[in-house]
Simulated scan of single mutants.
Amino acid sequence: MNALHSTIRHSAVFDHPEMGEHENVVFVKDRDTGLSAIIAIHDTTLGPALGGCRVWPYGNPSDALTDALRLSRGMTYKNALAGLDLGGGKAVIIADPRKDKTAAMMEAFGRHVDRLSGTYITAEDVGVSPQDMEAVARQTKHVRGTRATGLGDPSPYTALGVFEGIRASVRHVFGNGDLEGRTVSVQGLGHVGFDVARRLHEAGARLIVSDIHLPAVLRAVEEFGALAVDPAEAHMVEADIFVPCALGAGLNARTVPQIRARIVAGAANNQLQTPADGAALKKRGILYAPDYAINAGGVISIALATPGGNDAHVREKTVAIGDTLAVIFERASAEETTPERVADAMAEERLEKSGKT
C-alpha cells in the first residue's frame, strides 16, 4: 500500500468530521508522473458533481482529505444556490504548483477523472491554470473551463461576481453601493484576487493588498497605487471591507476578534473555520457575505458557457449574484440569524424540492 493510502487509512475516513453525506471519495496515485490526488463527490441530487481541481503542497494527506471534503460540500451548496442543475464535487492534487506540476501530471489526473464516467466534472481552481485544464481535456471530456467547452478561464467571472457581491454588501451596510473612497483590504492576488482589486480600483476604492507572492503585490502597488501589508495582517488593518481571496479557514477564533472592517466579502472558499465564527462576526456587527454565494461566478461560467464566445447570459447571471446576496442579507436581518445560515437554508430548500431527503 502506498504512503497516500496508508496515511489516509489511519485517519479513519468514514469517521472523518467532514465526511457527512459524501457519496464517493477516490484516492489517486500515478507513479510515473508523481500524481497524488483525492477526488470527493458530495452530492449528485441536482446532476453531475461539478467542482474545480486544486493543486497545493498540503503538509500531509489528511489535510488534503479535509480540504477536499469541505470544498466538495461547498460546491453542492454553491451550485444549488446559483440555480444550476449540478451537484458538488472537488479534487485536490498534493503538489507544489510552482515546482511539481507538469502537463503529464495533469493528463494523468484527467485519465482518473474519465474513469468516473461523468459523475464528476472538473475545472480550474487554486494552483491550476487554463493551460492545465487543456492538458486534462486531452484525456477526458468531463472538464469545463477550456476553449472547447466555451469561455475558457473562469476566474474573470468569479471576480465579477465577487465585485457585484461587494457592492451589494456595501449597499446593505452603508445604504448605497458606491465604492468611491472606500478602503478595501484584498488578501490574495491570484487570478481572481488581482482582478477583484482591479475592479475595485476602477470603482474608486483605496486598496490595501497582500499576497505571499511578492511580484503580484508589487504589480498591484504600481498599477493601483495600493498600500502593501503582510498577508498575516490583512484582516487587522483599518478598512471598510476585508476581501479574503486566498485559502480557507481564515475567519477563525483568532482572527475574527482582530477584524476592523465592517464587511467581509471575498472569493476564498470555506472562509469560516467553524459555524461559531460566523456567529462571532454577527455579534461584532460585521456583515459576512457567504463565500459560496459570492464566488459562484466561475462555476456559473463553466456550467452555462457554450462554444462561440458569447457570454451575455453568463454575465447576466453572474451580476445577479448581488441580487441573491441582497435577499440573503434581508432574510438574515428579518430572521435575526447569520447570512451563511440563510444561504444554507436556501440551498437546502432547492435540494429538497429536487428529491433530497
Rank of each mutant, 00 (worst) to 15 (best):
Leu4Glu: 06
Ile8Asn: 05
Ile8Glu: 10
Arg9Phe: 12
His10Glu: 13
Phe14Val: 04
Met19Ala: 12
Met19Tyr: 10
Glu21Val: 13
Asp32Cys: 08
Leu35Ala: 04
Ala37Gln: 10
Ala40Thr: 10
His42Gly: 03
Asp43Asn: 15
Thr45Glu: 01
Thr45Gln: 06
Gly51Trp: 03
Ser62Pro: 02
Asp63Val: 11
Leu65His: 06
Leu69Lys: 02
Leu69Gln: 05
Arg70Ile: 15
Arg70Asn: 08
Arg70Phe: 05
Ser72Arg: 11
Arg73Val: 11
Arg73Cys: 12
Arg73Ile: 10
Arg73Tyr: 14
Asn79Glu: 06
Leu81Phe: 14
Gly83Thr: 03
Asp85Asn: 15
Gly88Val: 12
Gly89Thr: 11
Ile93Arg: 01
Ala95Ile: 08
Asp96Met: 04
Lys99Arg: 15
Thr102Val: 05
Ala103Phe: 06
Ala108Glu: 05
Arg111Trp: 09
Arg111Gln: 15
Asp114Pro: 10
Gly118Trp: 08
Gly118Leu: 13
Thr119Glu: 15
Val126Cys: 09
Val128Ile: 14
Pro130Cys: 10
Lys141Tyr: 02
His142Lys: 08
Arg147Pro: 02
Thr158Tyr: 06
Ala159Val: 00
Phe163Leu: 02
Glu164Lys: 14
Ile166Gln: 04
Ala168Glu: 06
Val170Gly: 05
Val186Asp: 02
Leu189Ala: 04
Gly190Ser: 09
Phe194Cys: 00
Phe194Glu: 02
Val196Asn: 00
Val196Ile: 12
Arg199Ala: 00
Leu200Val: 06
His201Val: 09
Glu202His: 03
Ala203Asp: 00
Arg206Glu: 11
Val209Ala: 04
His213Pro: 01
His213Ile: 12
Leu214Gly: 05
Leu214Thr: 13
Pro215Asn: 08
Leu218Met: 14
Arg219Trp: 01
Ala220Gln: 05
Ala220Met: 01
Val221Arg: 09
Phe224Thr: 00
Val229Ile: 07
Asp230His: 09
Ala232Ser: 15
Glu233Thr: 07
His235Asn: 09
Glu238Ser: 11
Asp240Tyr: 13
Phe242Arg: 09
Val243Phe: 03
Gly248Glu: 08
Ile259Glu: 01
Ile263Leu: 03
Val264Glu: 10
Ala267Cys: 13
Ala268Val: 12
Ala280Gln: 11
Ala289Pro: 12
Pro290Ala: 15
Tyr292Ala: 00
Gly298Cys: 04
Gly298Arg: 00
Ile302Ala: 08
Ile302Pro: 07
Ala303Lys: 01
Ala303Leu: 07
Gly308Glu: 04
Gly309Lys: 05
Asp311Pro: 01
Asp311Met: 01
Val314Pro: 01
Glu316Leu: 10
Ala320Pro: 03
Asp323Pro: 04
Asp323Trp: 01
Ile328Glu: 05
Phe329Asp: 01
Arg331Val: 13
Arg331Cys: 09
Ala332Lys: 14
Ala332Leu: 14
Ser333Thr: 15
Glu335Cys: 11
Thr337Arg: 14
Arg341Ile: 11
Glu348Tyr: 13
Glu349Trp: 01
Arg350Gly: 05
Arg350Cys: 01
Ser354Asp: 09
